[in-house]
């Protein structure tokens, strides 16, 4: 079953590998919206996200021969988009992580206990409010919430993407989540 998922769109991928433009367009059409959303969640600016998506597809098609079905084509492509988006932020000197996580490392357990209380107090499971809350998060917090909750990466992967340690990823995430809930409750 899992193998089947990995080989999803295999035919299109193989034809794209040999440079078939039509197959490349079909793959593009299948993934462009998802990739655009991934990028805009990180970057927040439409034009920047378009540039990143464009770069990512070009890179993906040019390096498709190195894709060996170790993951799905979609997750391989998504990783390219995310890496490019994060690099773009780093170039623009926009923080991809929060600066105050060291302080949090010490009192992580206490805060986790706090969160349970806070979670109960989230007034609404309103997706609109959550989206809005994420937009109001500081840059560093927003990235980790996006990567963990929406893109579905685990802390090992996030650590790799952001260039931080796994424990930093965990502590940052908890702090970001706490902040998010606080924001949502004020909306």
């Amino acid at each position: 079953m899992e193998t089947n998922i990995l080989y999803r769109h295999k035919d299109l991928v193989e034809k794209s590998k040999s440079g078939d433009r039509n197959s490349q367009y079909q793959l593009y059409e299948l993934y462009v919206d998802a990739m655009y959303n991934v990028s805009i969640r990180i970057l927040g600016i439409k034009e920047d996200a378009e540039d990143i998506v464009q770069d990512s597809f070009v890179e993906a098609f040019k390096n498709l021969k190195s894709f060996r079905y170790e993951s799905t084509f979609g997750s391989w492509l998504k990783r390219i988009v995310i890496n490019k988006s994060i690099n773009y932020l780093k170039i623009k000197k926009i923080p991809v992580t929060s600066f105050d996580y060291h302080e949090y490392n010490i009192s992580e357990d206490i805060n986790e206990q706090d969160e349970e209380g806070i979670n109960d107090s989230v007034k609404s499971r309103d997706i609109y409010k959550i989206k809005n809350g994420i937009k109001h998060l500081p840059d560093g917090y927003r990235q980790i919430i996006n990567l963990y909750l929406i893109e579905g990466y685990d802390h090992i992967e996030i650590a790799e993407i952001l260039g931080i340690t796994i424990s930093t990823s965990k502590s940052q995430y908890h702090r970001a989540k706490k902040k998010l809930i606080e924001i949502i409750n004020t909306l």
Partner: peptide, 17 residues
């Protein structure tokens, strides 16, 4: 539900192509 944006497909594809 977070994928709420729609990309300008033809514009981006033209550049890619």
């Amino acid at each position: 539900l977070f994928d709420e944006q729609r990309a300008d497909k033809s514009k981006i594809w033209d550049n890619i192509e």
